[in-house]
C-alpha cells in the first residue's frame, strides 16, 4: 500500500517538475494573469468606484474568461499525457515495470491537476489581491479559483481519455481543439439555435438536461450559483432557473471521473 502511494506521488511529482522546468506554469500563468488583470481594471473602470456591484461584474467577466481559456489549457496540457509517453517509448517501458499500470494514469492525472492548479493560482492571485485590498471578500475568489481549477481538471480528464484511446499526438492536437470548439463555442450556438428555431417552445427541463452534457455550461451555472448574489442572478435572468447545487456538483464530479475510468479501462486492455 505504502509503495502504491510512493509510486503515485513519484509519477505526479515528475509531471509537475517537467511542466515547471519547461516554463508552462509560469508562462501560461502569467498570460492568464494579464487577461484577468485587464478584466479587473476594466471592471473598475466601468463603475468608476469600488463597489459590490462592480466586484460582481468583474467576477462574472472572469467566469467567462475561465470558460474560454481554462478548458483549452486543460486540453493542451493533457492531450499528450499518455500519447507522449507512448511516442517517447516510455509507455511500454513503464508498463513492463512491477507496478499496476493504472498508477501511471492516476499519477499523471494528479500531476496535471497540480500543474493546472499552480497555473491558475499564478493567474488569479494578482486580481484577487487587488480586489480583496479594495475591500472585497476572499470567499468569492476562493470559490472562483476552486471551480476554475475544477473545470480545467474536467478537461484534463477528457484529454487524458483521448490520449489513451488515440495514442497519436498529431491527431490528438486536432481532437483537443475540436473538443474546445464543441463545448465552448458550438454548444452554446446550438442551444441558441434550438431556442430560436422553436421560438422558445422548449421545456426548461430539457434545456437544463442539455447543460449536463456540457461541462462548461455546468461550470457557468455552478459558479453563478456559488459566487453571484441574488441581484446579479436576477439581472442575468436566471432566478429560479439554476438546478440544485448538489446536482451540478454531482454532474461535475461525473465529468471528472468517468473519462479517467474509460482511460483506465483502455490502458488495461492495451496489447490485447
Amino acid at each position: 500500500m505504502m509503495s502504491t502511494f510512493t509510486i503515485l506521488f513519484a509519477i505526479a511529482r515528475k509531471e509537475f517538475v517537467d511542466h515547471l522546468r519547461n516554463g508552462w506554469i509560469v508562462a501560461v500563468g502569467l498570460a492568464f494573469a494579464i487577461f484577468s488583470l485587464l478584466i479587473t481594471f476594466v471592471g473598475f473602470g466601468f463603475t468608476g468606484s469600488v463597489g459590490v456591484g462592480q466586484e460582481q461584474s468583474t467576477l462574472f467577466s472572469l467566469i467567462n474568461l475561465v470558460i474560454y481559456l481554462v478548458p483549452l489549457l486543460g486540453l493542451l496540457l493533457s492531450y499528450d499525457g499518455i500519447a507522449g509517453e507512448y511516442e517517447r517509448g516510455t509507455l511500454d517501458l513503464l508498463r513492463s515495470y512491477p507496478f499496476n499500470s493504472l498508477l501511471l494514469l492516476y499519477g499523471k492525472w494528479l500531476g496535471l491537476f497540480m500543474v493546472l492548479a499552480s497555473t491558475l493560482i499564478v493567474g488569479l492571485t494578482a486580481p484577487a489581491i487587488i480586489s480583496i485590498a479594495s475591500g472585497h471578500t476572499l470567499q468569492a475568489w476562493t470559490v472562483l479559483l476552486v471551480t476554475s481549477v475544477w473545470i480545467g481538471i474536467v478537461f484534463n480528464s477528457i484529454a487524458l481519455m483521448f490520449s489513451v484511446l488515440i495514442l497519436e499526438r498529431s491527431r490528438l492536437i486536432a481532437i483537443a481543439i475540436g473538443i474546445w470548439l464543441l463545448f465552448v463555442v458550438l454548444f452554446d450556438l446550438g442551444v441558441i439555435g434550438l431556442l430560436v428555431s422553436t421560438e422558445g417552445n422548449v421545456p426548461m427541463d430539457m434545456v437544463n438536461l442539455l447543460f449536463y452534457l456540457n461541462p462548461t455550461a455546468l461550470y457557468r451555472l455552478l459558479s453563478i450559483d456559488l459566487i453571484m448574489d441574488q441581484t446579479m442572478i436576477q439581472q442575468l435572468g436566471l432566478m429560479g432557473q439554476i438546478p440544485p447545487t448538489a446536482a451540478l456538483i454531482g454532474a461535475f464530479f461525473a465529468w471528472t471521473v468517468v473519462p479517467v475510468m474509460i482511460a483506465g479501462w483502455r490502458l488495461r486492455r492495451l496489447g490485447k
Binding site: 515528475k14 517538475v17 517537467d18 519547461n22 517517447r88 517509448g89 511500454d92 517501458l93 513492463s96 512491477p98
Partner: peptide
C-alpha cells in the same frame, strides 16, 4: 514483472 530488465529499441526519456 519484477524479474524483468527491459531496454526498448528507442527510448527518448524526459528531456527536462
Amino acid at each position: 514483472k519484477s524479474i524483468f530488465g527491459y531496454l526498448p529499441e528507442t527510448t527518448a526519456f524526459y528531456p527536462n
